[in-house]
Amino acid sequence: MDPEELEFVGESVSIGIIPNFNFDAIHLIAGTVGPFKAGLPLHIPLWLAIHLRKQQKCRIVPPNWMDRDILEDKKEEEKRVPNFTSMPCDQYMIVSKLIFSHASEDVPSIEEIKTFIKDIYDIRQAKLRTAIDSFFIGKKQLDGATQVSFTNLTMFEIHTVRSFLPYASDLIARLERVCQQHTSNANDTVHSNSFFTSSSSGY
């Protein structure tokens, strides 16, 4: 998926706002939003919050995890643990990007938070890169499997490697099958060399 599509998916998370206008409840397919009372905080989908924020009709309440101390702890934990840690929000990249670019005044100490989130993202990307590297070259022998853990990886991060990793592993797996077949058949004189059988068996 493209980042724009991921952004679209991520926009459905709910976020707190404080409206400065009065309005009745809006009935949408995904659920009812509102009613809006000036000064009373409520939860609405992020896309609507951004839309209202652009028109200066509300103030966005940053999510709980968008906090200096929590993010600092998270960053330390991410550094310490070899596997991916679970993120406070599955769409953390999308939520923070949208809030930072449209409602930067609503977040206290935004510069520090921005740096922490960028650091966490970079650490996770580096981990992902090492995980994939060990996936490709970790196995020195044909026996013994490599184990790589992708637990807690968020959707956004998965899609940064999705167009490459499965197809690269497919190619490797296909050549591995060829390799195994011919090592096991090395002493055999009978080979199946037919163009048709070899293509239908699909290695």
Partner: peptide, 17 residues
Amino acid sequence: NGFVGRMIYETCRSRMK
């Protein structure tokens, strides 16, 4: 000898990174 199969497999794996 199964030599070519092993060669392309090993080459591919180290090149993917």
